[in-house]
Design a protein around this nucleic acid. Structure first.
Length: 491
RNA sequence: CGGGGCGUGGCUCAGCCUGGUAGAGCGCCUGGUUCGGGACCAGGAGGCCGGAGGUUCGAAUCCUCUCGCCCCGACCA
């Protein structure tokens, strides 16, 4: 056994009672993270949580490499003046910057900001590194921490410091940059759906909602179990904004000096928050098999009359078979806890499959298999147990995604007037749920976004694929709009 | 940044109003009996009561000031 955590006796607040309290309970009792306590607004990611992040990193990183990107690392500190070079960018970030004014016992001549994102400092180096069209495209990615001083924090969803990856690319043409931004959006969508089993809507942000400094932002939006939207990833067409601010130019084939077209894209540890709010239940964490650090835990049932050596021998042999097949398995052979306590323990930690093997099983060459998401126990033969479990894990992975899709569909409604939008959204709160994705025609105009903001909601995105009924009239201005956008309350 | 709540063994909290030996449950340690959904018995360790100042013979308790955390709203991944 690797972990000897104290037994949890506190129960988890049911989702229906208070969703926010439920979320916090799941994070804490799943032993994913805890508030940093001595550092305001920050969190400690514990081994259980960090292991999930590492698996996400691995899945993402593999895809970044496969699409031609290389990893780099830029400084945590950015000269304050850099942020100011792109007007919209600095305006977007200035309220949430942490600034270093003193170091080495002296006041610094120029303050450094702790990076909230790295467009500016990377722009600076791009301008040094890029001379010719032959240097393009430049496709980089950085795994890093960033700081955005937040007024209100929730573990994983919003903390003052968080971990993420930020891709930064430079291209010769606008078209190529556009294609890059969309390509990476689809990488995110692939990981969200096929690794995290979290269905997402791929879309474009409205001008009011886009990243400060970008021409256009794409996003994946997921729906949490309370119906609130979560922006799970973003990908930006930066246009030539940072190119102009940092003088990132290249000489074209024709010998002309041109500004590069850039993109940036990122996902963060927020994904883990989305993962939790997508799958977990009133008994605690539920992790999709593809991300679970431990996929199977075997609990041996030892009784007074049991031949302990024989039973543990069998249990360890099964565990060895599973591990050999690439199914990460642990044996919980602690003697200080009863089997019941162990079941609760692993349940709150989201282990996909728990296997129970006792004396009766030993005689019959069977076991009891419990799938975390269904909560049902069923007997299984130990013959071919590896294939049986692999089958369970595979089904769990696909069924979690299907369940998420069903929930998304069930909570997506169409509205044809601003009043209808208000009516539907007025019934939702983060604590009590009731959130919906309201599909409505609305013009991409900050004034229209502002109307929606009155309902404490926002235009989440305009989906890339129209799944509804094509063009219609804007519910605010009456002007023609190409397709319905997603309007929802969000995190 | 406003509103609310809370700081007392590792955790959850009682004690504070009405000052006088610092408590409970859980967890932890030792030994034993148990074990198919949160076991039990016996013994044990562990706290300058967030911090500073004040009132008092005496402060966890009263007063002042501070620091921090959590939750709820406006801004944001």
């Amino acid at each position: 056994m690797k972990q000897q955590q104290p037994q949890q006796t506190k129960s988890i607040t049911p989702r229906g009672d208070d969703f926010a309290a439920w979320y916090q309970d799941v994070v804490l009792q799943g032993d994913m993270a805890e508030p940093a306590e001595v550092v305001k607004g920050c969190m400690v990611i514990k081994p259980n949580g960090y292991a999930v992040w590492e698996r996400l990193q691995a899945e993402l990183d593999r895809r970044f490499k496969a699409t031609g990107h290389k990893n780099v690392y830029f400084p945590l500190f950015i000269p304050e003046s850099f942020l100011k070079k792109e007007a919209e960018h600095v305006e977007g970030f200035s309220p949430e910057l942490a600034v270093v004014t003193h170091a080495g016992g002296k006041k610094l001549e120029e303050a450094y900001v702790v990076r909230p994102t790295s467009e500016t400092i990377i722009g600076h180096f791009f301008s040094r590194w890029i001379q010719s069209y032959r240097d393009l495209p430049m496709l980089l990615n950085q795994w890093a921490n960033v700081v955005r001083w937040e007024l209100r924090t929730r573990m994983f969803l919003r903390t003052s410091e968080f971990l993420w990856q930020e891709g930064h690319t430079a291209h010769a043409t606008q078209q190529e940059a556009y294609e890059e931004a969309v390509k990476m959006l689809h990488v995110y969508g692939d990981v969200a759906e096929n690794v995290m089993a979290m269905p997402v809507i791929r879309g474009v942000k409205t001008r009011a909602e886009k990243f400060a400094g970008a021409d256009r932002s794409f996003c994946i939006e997921a729906m949490m179990q309370n119906g609130l939207a979560l922006q799970a990833g973003t990908s930006h067409e930066l246009g030539q904004n940072f190119g102009k601010a940092f003088d990132v130019t290249y000489q074209s084939k024709e010998g002309k000096l041109e500004f590069v077209w850039q993109t940036s894209w990122g996902v963060s540890t927020r994904l883990i928050g989305g993962l939790i709010m997508t799958h977990s239940d009133d008994n605690g964490l539920v992790l999709p098999p593809a991300l679970a650090p431990t996929k199977v835990v075997i609990v041996p049932i030892l009784r007074k009359d049991t031949d302990v050596e024989q039973l543990l021998g069998k249990v360890n042999a099964v565990a060895a078979d599973l591990n050999a097949a690439g199914i990460a398995t642990e044996v919980d052979d602690r003697t200080e806890h009863s089997p019941g306590a162990k079941f609760f323990h692993w349940e709150t930690r989201g282990v996909p499959v728990v296997l129970e093997i006792g004396p009766r099983d030993l005689a019959a060459n069977t076991c009891v298999l419990k799938r975390r998401d269904l909560g049902t126990k069923e007997p299984a033969s130990l013959d071919g147990i590896v294939a049986t479990i692999q089958g369970s894990l595979d089904r769990m992975q696909t069924e979690l995604l299907e369940a998420g899709r069903a929930r998304l569909a069930a909570n997506t409604v169409v509205a044809n007037s601003i009043g209808e939008v208000e009516e539907i959204l007025s019934q939702a709160t983060a604590e009590k749920g009731g959130g919906k994705f309201v599909m409505a025609h609305i013009k991409d105009d900050p004034a229209c976004d502002a109307r929606v903001k009155e309902f404490k909601a926002s235009v989440r995105c305009i989906p890339l694929e129209d799944r509804f009924d094509g063009p219609g009239k804007c519910i605010v201005t009456g002007e023609p709009v190409e397709k319905r956008a997603v309007i929802a309350k969000s995190y």
